[in-house]
Computed example of a mutant assay.
Amino acid sequence: MRPADRTVAAVLLGSLDPKREDAQISQPELCRRTGLSLGTVRGALRRLAAAGYFAVIEPSGRDLYYGDHARRYRPQLEG
């Protein structure tokens, strides 16, 4: 895991909604909070998902209709 992956994971975990148990945060907001470039954040998100640390939840049709295009990220906890 790269340092950028850890940084992005820490921000995602700090942004969890306790009721939904996921983080809904845009990539530009992740850039702002981490100080990383958009390409670095995207790469980190891709690696975190591929490694199974986070599941990526795409916005639903209803979300898109109301203008919400942010993905949600749910941590994958081991049983």
Rank of each mutant, 00 (worst) to 15 (best):
E21H: 14
E21M: 15
E21C: 14
D22P: 10
D22F: 13
A23G: 13
Q24R: 15
I25W: 14
I25Y: 14
I25P: 14
S26Q: 13
S26W: 13
S26P: 13
S26Y: 11
S26C: 12
Q27L: 11
Q27I: 15
P28L: 12
P28R: 10
E29T: 15
E29I: 15
E29H: 15
L30T: 09
L30A: 08
L30V: 08
L30Q: 09
C31I: 07
R32D: 13
R32Y: 10
R32V: 09
R32A: 15
T34I: 01
T34H: 04
T34Y: 03
G35I: 07
G35V: 08
L36N: 05
L36T: 04
S37C: 08
S37H: 10
S37V: 11
S37T: 13
L38W: 09
L38V: 09
G39H: 11
G39I: 11
G39S: 13
T40C: 09
V41Q: 03
V41N: 03
V41I: 05
R42S: 10
R42W: 06
G43K: 13
G43T: 12
G43Q: 14
G43Y: 11
G43N: 15
A44V: 07
A44S: 12
A44K: 04
L45T: 03
L45K: 02
L45V: 05
R46V: 09
R46I: 08
R46Q: 12
R47Y: 09
R47A: 12
R47F: 08
R47V: 12
L48E: 02
L48V: 03
L48R: 05
L48G: 03
A49L: 04
A49E: 07
A49T: 08
A50D: 14
A51S: 10
A51H: 06
A51W: 07
A51Y: 06
A51M: 07
G52K: 00
G52Q: 02
G52N: 01
G52C: 01
Y53C: 00
Y53P: 00
Y53N: 00
Y53S: 01
F54C: 00
A55T: 08
A55D: 09
V56I: 09
V56F: 03
V56R: 08
I57T: 03
I57A: 02
E58V: 03
E58H: 00
E58L: 02
P59Y: 00
P59E: 04
P59H: 00
P59C: 01
P59W: 01
P59S: 01
P59V: 02
S60W: 02
S60G: 03
S60L: 02
S60H: 04
S60F: 02
G61F: 07
G61K: 06
G61V: 06
G61L: 08
